[in-house]
């Protein structure tokens, strides 16, 4: 059965259905509906909802709940995510699974509350200090947002790597019909023998990201990077739309990805052979399929709500085999399909 839900609400409901029972937050626009939904619904499922004194506290509560073995989540928007970055680095270092939702708004600084994609670097290149990665999933519809939240919990538990949902204000605020995924059963959550449950009949468990010995710490990080390589091999996700005969392919994710879908349709109506490549995992980035595409498509036009962040990964993947122009908007301005189409027409003619 389909229900009409806001992106923010659908992500909250999906988290509950994924077995998230500990949620910690600090209010910020434009993700307020996620917080409100959790406040109303999570306690009814026997879960913990706690409004923390700051984003810093909230992410450290997530660290604690994750260490205790719970499926746990926090959500925020860009400035709040910056504050959470310290804790996210610790989660990554201590190999704790957790889900962080970033409903992006325009920055830097206080910026504004309009949708933007300026946190791509922060999400995919580390964000906090040290050598680590996050699994980063970028939904482009409310339906996909719900599904990717469920997936984020699974991947995070499987690899013991924190996962981030990189959404934006538009996706968080908009309503769409959504077919909610079935709730998981508690036995579907993998066992966590490393969790802090009390050292009864076993040696004590320690959850830590600390090791003073560089050689030992190097081995810990090498093992971690082995996991990252495994994730890169197994978990790359993307979508291609009308790329088969395309002379130009738009590369866009999230909200920009769906807007570009409209651009493709309009272009096709006008006889222009345009397609769309939409990364779903931003890390691991779908470099290989993009490289494949660059062998037969002369122009890969990256479109972002930023000054060009994912664009760097696109160029790294393409390595000069195709033209890689960029079109972006800043400050929370969302380009309309017509505006993007005019840009497309600079490169292809019907």
């Amino acid at each position: 059965m389909k229900v009409l839900m806001r992106g923010n609400e659908a992500m909250a409901e999906a988290a509950i259905r994924a077995g998230c029972r500990c949620y910690f937050c600090y209010p910020i626009t434009p993700q307020g509906e996620l917080v409100e939904y959790m406040a109303r619904h999570l306690p009814r499922h026997g879960g913990v909802f706690l409004q923390a004194e700051s984003e810093v506290a909230a992410i450290n509560m997530v660290y604690g709940a994750a260490a205790a073995g719970a499926r746990t989540m926090t959500s925020s928007s860009s400035p709040g995510i910056s504050l959470k970055m310290e804790g996210i680095s610790y989660l990554a270092g201590a190999r704790l699974p957790a889900v962080i939702v970033n409903v992006m708004r325009a920055g830097p600084g206080l910026g504004n509350i309009a949708p933007a994609q300026g946190d791509y670097f922060q999400a995919t290149k580390g964000g906090g200090h040290g050598d680590y990665r996050l699994i980063v999933l970028a939904p482009s519809t409310v339906q996909e947002a719900a599904e990717l939240v469920m997936l984020a919990f699974d991947l995070s538990d499987r690899y013991r790597v924190p996962a981030m949902i990189l959404a934006d204000g538009m996706l968080g605020q908009m309503m769409e019909p959504v077919e909610l995924p079935e709730p998981i059963l508690p036995q579907m959550i993998p066992p966590k023998p490393w969790a802090l449950t009390g050292a009864k009949d076993r040696a004590p468990n320690v959850v830590s990201s600390f090791d003073l010995d560089p050689y030992r710490f190097r081995e810990i990080l090498r093992a971690l990077w082995e996991i990252y390589r495994e994730i890169e091999r197994n978990e790359v996700r993307w979508e291609e739309y009308e790329t088969g005969d395309a002379e130009l392919v738009l590369v866009a994710y999230g909200t920009m990805g769906r807007i570009c879908r409209t651009v493709v349709r309009q272009a096709r109506r006008e006889g222009l052979r345009v397609g769309l490549f939409r990364p779903i995992t931003l890390w691991p980035f779908p470099s290989e399929p993009l490289r494949e595409l660059s062998h037969r498509v002369p122009v890969l036009l990256t479109v972002e709500l930023s000054a060009g962040q994912m664009w760097e990964d696109v160029r790294l993947a393409v390595e000069g085999r195709a033209k890689t122009p960029f079109y972006g908007e800043l400050g929370g301005v969302v380009p309309t399909p017509d505006e993007i189409l005019s840009e497309v027409k600079r490169y292809v003619r019907g």
Binding site: M174, E176, R258, I259, R265, T336, D338
Partner: peptide, 9 residues
């Protein structure tokens, strides 16, 4: 068909 852009020109 699935809605692309939720904003319209």
């Amino acid at each position: 068909e699935p809605v692309g852009s939720p904003i319209v020109d």
